[in-house]
Design a protein around this nucleic acid. Sequence first.
DNA 1: AGGCTTTCTGTAAACGTTTGCATAAAATTG
DNA 2: CAATTTTATGCAAACGTTTACAGAAAGCCT
Lengths: 337, 337
Amino acid sequence: MIVIVTIKDVAKKAGVSTSTVSRVISGNGPVNDATRQKVMEAVRALNYRPNFLAKGLKEGRTKTIGLIIPNIRNPIFPAVVRGVEDTARKQGYTVVLCNTDEDVLIEREYVEKLRKRWVDGFILATVSEHIDHVLELKKKGFPVVLLIRNIDKHVDAVIIDNFKAAYKAVSYLVKTGHKKIAIIKGNQQLALYRERFRGYKQALKDAGLPLKEELITGEDAECVQWSRDGYNAINRLLDQSIDFDAVFATTDLRAIGAIRAIKDHGLRVPEDISVIGFDNLEFSSLLDPPLSTMAQPFYDMGARAVNKLIQLIKNGQNAEPVIDVMEAELIIRKSTR
Amino acid sequence: MIVIVTIKDVAKKAGVSTSTVSRVISGNGPVNDATRQKVMEAVRALNYRPNFLAKGLKEGRTKTIGLIIPNIRNPIFPAVVRGVEDTARKQGYTVVLCNTDEDVLIEREYVEKLRKRWVDGFILATVSEHIDHVLELKKKGFPVVLLIRNIDKHVDAVIIDNFKAAYKAVSYLVKTGHKKIAIIKGNQQLALYRERFRGYKQALKDAGLPLKEELITGEDAECVQWSRDGYNAINRLLDQSIDFDAVFATTDLRAIGAIRAIKDHGLRVPEDISVIGFDNLEFSSLLDPPLSTMAQPFYDMGARAVNKLIQLIKNGQNAEPVIDVMEAELIIRKSTR
DNA sequence: AGGCTTTCTGTAAACGTTTGCATAAAATTG
DNA sequence: CAATTTTATGCAAACGTTTACAGAAAGCCT
């Protein structure tokens, strides 16, 4: 049986009204020093804690934000989550984390649940292109910021320029003398992979290299066993004796699979084939060889999304949504020659 | 400006009282089919969503649980979190995730915040041995389950038997012919590492092998760059030409560091030195060589902790707390000969 | 001393629900 | 058909806060 101490108990104990207690606690409005002492003492004696629900109900806000991501087991997300949480905490906000498993129904379910005056706003690494629920939120004036995956010009977002990043990575391979660059293209249902694919093509084109069908590999599946896609793709290429001297993997996990496949065929990375990844996961530097990759600033992206959201919560919706594009950074380690 | 639709608006639109609307929505109490129709229609027309805070305040519960962990970037936790969240969701509960950064002050801050009638109970992978705040919760009748790290016989918990698991791992090394087994011992401030250390010593003893001081390595620091500890420890051993044929690393991350150090010294795993880890991280099978390790059933532990907690929430505190000890499983891959 | 601020405190309404109680209508019973 | 049960609905209080308003006391000015 949990016994609940309310503001009334404190008021009675201190011999004042509840409003006075409230004023002491919140610091709103004047209160005599002597009474303040009495109240504080009663608070301490009774171990009083203001009821979050009552406070939120009255004030019309909870200082809580909803963070909706596909899957925390996808290793790109832990850093994002910490960026969000740390920044939120510093500003007095708490985060409710939700995993959707890439399932738009679960995503909708969570949005429905949390928008019932539970959270003051949302950060969404949304699942797919079915985002009517997001636009609906936005229309109703609910603060929303999209993160990593943006979809629509009409919603605030924090992303990187995937086209440019892929372009940079592939151009680096070109510049270091690679001529036959395979790509593990990622799930083309997602805009971000389409962009990376586009960057790959553009980089080849600008370098005067041909775009070869047989070097375009990988499935559209997401999220099964992430490195598997990379392994299968490159394994198939090698089995078919297709000639290539580098791999642009659209994620680090796919790069790990690719390296595994290359080694299994008795070849060396990077001497025989260079591999470049995308993401810069926390353990990518621990691989053998340490992975060259395009680093996304995950932590900072999370942090920035929170700041953006808190702005929206405080000031209401902007006239025009703004999309922050952050820089991805090329990190060269030992998997490229 | 967010416009809020309340139960009153629905009542007015449907031409009934608020109590009737409430009954329609919650399904408590009888209501005529015709009125139900009218109400449902009004609900739909107005896009009504019951206010979570008001409901929680009235009902005295929120169907929310607080999950407090040291750091989601520690790769053992994503699986735990999913186990917790998935199981909670199936039972209509939502999870608030909090990272403490191994800082007991932040942990206390979160506990203070969430116990203000926000969550119905806590799952804690607690930080240290300073757990007065946990015992306080428990004393006040607040449902609490400890996870992974348990501290006290007086609080319900879900853990593995770290002594036994370490014993198993080291015994396997002994059985496969290793005679000089080094340990990277982990942070001895934490009970779980003390237990693993104890298991190591006991296994050597039972096998009639000597416990050599110089083979006991690793620092008490936690959480800086986790694999670094393993790297430094084994690097030092090799630099000093200390002779050993196997390493028992108390975490997979330490094992990764150890492997790196061994390779850097021009030695091979497992031909020259076997390495066995502890945890079975999601990417441990992707390493080179794939890591042999003691697998902890992280997802299931999370799931079980939730079920335990929901029991406590529903039935109140047990007379006697019960500690669930789950099985760790030895997984042999290619890092041991 | 009378009027005017300023400081302090209490009363009561409000936030949006749920639910016990009362009542009315309808259905069932002997 | 009167008596009883069942079904359906509304009224109003309650959950634990915050805050507008009002009033009392005290301080300051001519």
